[in-house]
Amino acid sequence: MFEARLVQGGLLKKVLDSIKDLVTDANFDCSPNGFSLQAMDSSHVSLVALLLRSDGFDHYRADRPISMGMNLNNMAKMLKCAGNDDIITMKAEDAGDTVTFMFESPNQERISDFELKLMDIDSEQLGIPDTDYAATVKMPASEFQRICKDLASIGDTVLISVTKDGVKFSTTGDIGSANITCRQNTSVDKPEEQTTIELNEPVCLSFALRYLNSFAKATPLSHTVTLSMSKELPVVVEYRIGDLGHIRFYLAPKIEDEEMEDEA
């Protein structure tokens, strides 16, 4: 038996909106620790890892770990029917083939049940390593979203270079090029408007903007976003979801140099 009740039901809606374009089908794992998902996009370039900790829910019960395969678009269709202030409860039997979403309006006047059929998904579960990154940038999520959106209209690849002074996003396209630099500013009053950089080593990596823009759909979940980078490794774009958990996106870098003759 799995049961999870979330008073801030809107969060779940936002979570789903941020990942449904990246991944079509995915397994949600419900364990005593929490409600989590891990999935790669079809071309294995990016990975999304979601964790909603059990103690963040208002009620959480998972007798034994179960895995629920869902089509995220279909799940999103059902969650769309929930109001932003609704309380959402998820329920599933251990061996059942459906999951039930229950939406309660804040004043308890309206209660709706939606039952979604589960599917068998051949998941490729990956272990995600804990690593020390060469550079970690924390910045306002809305700023990051804006940068990605703006640059995508110029080019399709962004070069992110982090130095101790700031983080620079650059792109080149047919019509020209663009550079946006965000300086480290710890002096701002509100912590969520700060840009901070922790640096062990300068890093410079290229990424497909298409994916970053897709990640930026998680902006409504959090005020700040954290980018963690190391040479040749995937970038981690993390949005914290209050004290409930986090959503992390991993994106493999692009190969930069074009000089070499193609051998591949």
Partner: peptide, 30 residues
């Protein structure tokens, strides 16, 4: 545009695709 040029030159989409170097790394080999 580059693709179109290559296609005019090689005349075959398959050869074009083969000649292109992949620039995107993957997290995990499919």
């Amino acid at each position: 545009a580059k693709l179109r040029d290559m296609h005019n030159q090689l005349g075959d989409m398959g050869d074009v695709a083969q000649a292109c170097r992949h620039t995107q790394m993957t997290l995990h080999r499919p």
